[in-house]
Amino acid sequence: MSLLHTPPNRPSGKSVQLMTTCLCDTFYADVAQATVEILEYLGCDIELPDGQTCCGQPAFNGGDWKSSRKVVRHAVKTFKGDKPVVVPSGSCAAMIFHGALLAFEKEDDLPEVKALGERTWELVDFIVNGLGVTEWPGKFDASVSFHSSCHLRGSNSKAAVHQLMGTIDGLTTKQFDEEEQCCGFGGTFAVSFPNVSREMGNLKVENLIKPNPDIVASADMGCMMHFGGMMDKQGMTIKRMHIAQILRDSLKNGGLI
């Protein structure tokens, strides 16, 4: 395995399971809500498995694969069936279809874990490549600096995000320096390497806001929690939105929902 190649031939369809992500479950309710609103606008029937918690990524990245497997096993148990699983986070999606496979390499239940990965989609990847939506309706009058989170590297999601944002009436995308640079979150890295993480975050924030965007956006709340938390600490008031919120607000502004 190498870069995060999105798994091929995943099932699509309008009956989906939503993986809320632990961050939206605890801190970012409106991002999950926006995800539901846009999927329903697209005609999806959403099942929200009640027992869901987390994808296991914090322990996986932190090096505690044993703990991570415990959480992944729980996710596999929770997301039963064969519907597509949609996640409003590139990193959680990648944990399920990429990271978990590494952590389970020598485990007997690898096939079950793999099966979950083979039906898991990052939200925007699902909208564009699963449902075949190539233009986004509505209106969104704002300029956006979009932070490409690292887990979009090599996956279909990055192109999908720009595909949709590029077609929204009124939206302009800002170019900025070192677009590919990580924000410095990295899960437990942010606390085990606090100095390097902070400097990476400062650089990211500086680059993101330099072109004076109206909004700073991302497809991952992990990154936004980190560099957004830094912006809050520094008293910056620039608006931050998840891509799902931009898509939802575009529909609202266009009177479509």
Binding site: D25, F27, A190, P194
Partner: peptide, 20 residues
């Protein structure tokens, strides 16, 4: 370590589930 450079977001646990 988190809060020396960042604020924590407001806790909204369970709010999305309730809304849904």
């Amino acid at each position: 370590a988190w809060q020396h450079a960042r604020k924590l977001p407001k806790f909204q646990g369970g709010e999305f589930r309730k809304w849904f």
